[in-house]
C-alpha cells in the first residue's frame, strides 16, 4: 500500500484538485448558467496565492485563502456584469474573461513574472489537508442537492419562469453561483500552484476549460459525485491505458466520444441505474413471478 501510495501520491493530489476545478464549472451549470469563469478563477487563485507567498512572504494556508477569496470576489463581480447573457453567449463571455486573465498574467511584469510565470511558491500542503478542504466543499455542495434547496436549484436551472413564480429569486441564485464558482475555482488554482510551486500564464487556457467540462459531462453533470467520477477517470486514465503508448491519445478521444454518445447522464447515470436495478431486483422478481402465475 505504501509503495503504491508513494508512487501515486501526485495522482491522488491531482484527482482532488481536478475535482475542485470541475466543481467550479459544475456549480453554475447546475444553476443553469453556462459559465466557464471557474477556470479564470483557477488562474486568479493560483496567481493570488503565489504572489502572496513569493512577494508578501505569507505562509501556505493564508496564501491559499487569499487566492480563493480574491478569485471569488472577482468572479462574483463578473457575474453582476454578465448576468443578462444566456447560453453560449454567457459561455463565450466567460471564456473571454479566462483568456484575459491569462494575458494580464503575461503582461504583469515582476508581479506575475511575465511569460516565465512565478517560481518557488512551494507550500506545505499534505494530502490530508486537501482532502479536508475538498470534503468541506463537497459537504456544503451536497446540501444544495438535497430536499427543498435541491428542488429550488433544479427549478432555477430547468424552468426559471416557474422558479420565479414560486418566489425563488432566480437572479440572486445565479449571482450566488458565480461567487461559489469563483471561490472553488480559486481554491483549486491556489492549491495546485502551491503544490507544484509554479504557475505560468500558459496554464490558464482553453484546454483547462475543456478538461473540466469533459470531466463533468462524462462523470455526470447533476451532482458532485459525477464531478468526482469524472476527475478520477481523467486523472487516472493515462495510467490505465498507458500500455497503448503512442495510441493512448487516440484511445482517449474514442473514450470521450463514446461516453458522450452512449452515457446521456454520464457514468453516474449508469451507476445509479445499476444500483436501482440491484435494489429493486427482489421486487421485480416478485412482480415477474406474479405475472407468470396470473
Amino acid at each position: 500500500m505504501s509503495t503504491w501510495y508513494a508512487m501515486n501520491v501526485v495522482l491522488v493530489q491531482t484527482t482532488l484538485t481536478t475535482l475542485l476545478l470541475a466543481l467550479s464549472i459544475q456549480v453554475p451549470l447546475r444553476f443553469g448558467v453556462f459559465s466557464f469563469a471557474g477556470v479564470g478563477a483557477f488562474g486568479i487563485g493560483g496567481y493570488g496565492s503565489a504572489i502572496a507567498m513569493v512577494h508578501l512572504g505569507w505562509s501556505t494556508w493564508p496564501a491559499v485563502a487569499f487566492g480563493a477569496v480574491v478569485a471569488g470576489l472577482v468572479v462574483f463581480l463578473l457575474g453582476l456584469v454578465v448576468q443578462r447573457l444566456t447560453g453560449l453567449y454567457m459561455g463565450m463571455a466567460t471564456i473571454a474573461f479566462t483568456l484575459i486573465v491569462s494575458v494580464l498574467a503575461v503582461n504583469g511584469g515582476d508581479l506575475t513574472g511575465g511569460a516565465m510565470g512565478l517560481y518557488g511558491a512551494l507550500g506545505e500542503i499534505s494530502v490530508l489537508q486537501i482532502l479536508l478542504v475538498v470534503l468541506l466543499v463537497v459537504a456544503l455542495l451536497h446540501l444544495t442537492e438535497l430536499g427543498g434547496m435541491g428542488r429550488r436549484v433544479d427549478a432555477v436551472r430547468d424552468d426559471p419562469e416557474l422558479a420565479n413564480a414560486l418566489g425563488v429569486d432566480v437572479v440572486r441564485y445565479r449571482q450566488f453561483s458565480f461567487l461559489v464558482s469563483g471561490l472553488i475555482g480559486g481554491l483549486a488554482g491556489a492549491i495546485t500552484t502551491l503544490l507544484r510551486s509554479t504557475i505560468t500564464p500558459a496554464e490558464v487556457n482553453f484546454h483547462l476549460v475543456i478538461l473540466a467540462l469533459t470531466a463533468i459531462v462524462v462523470g455526470g453533470s447533476r451532482s458532485w459525485v459525477g464531478a468526482l467520477i469524472g476527475a478520477v477517470i481523467f486523472v487516472w486514465l493515462p495510467t490505465w491505458i498507458g500500455f497503448l503508448a503512442e495510441w493512448e491519445r487516440v484511445a482517449y478521444g474514442v473514450i470521450v466520444a463514446v461516453a458522450a454518445i452512449y452515457l446521456p447522464l454520464g457514468v453516474l447515470g449508469v451507476a445509479k441505474d445499476l444500483w436501482h436495478r440491484f435494489r429493486t431486483r427482489e421486487e421485480r422478481a416478485r412482480v415477474a413471478a406474479l405475472a407468470k402465475e396470473s
Binding site: T214, Y252, G253, A260, I261, P264
Partner: peptide, 29 residues
Amino acid sequence: PILKRAKNRHAAELRILIAGIGVAAIPLA
C-alpha cells in the same frame, strides 16, 4: 447517435460539444 437518443435538443447540446472534443482528439493524435 446522440441526436437519436436525446430526448430534446437542449439535452443533446453539451454532449455534442463533448463528442466533438473527443472526435477531434483522434486526428490530432
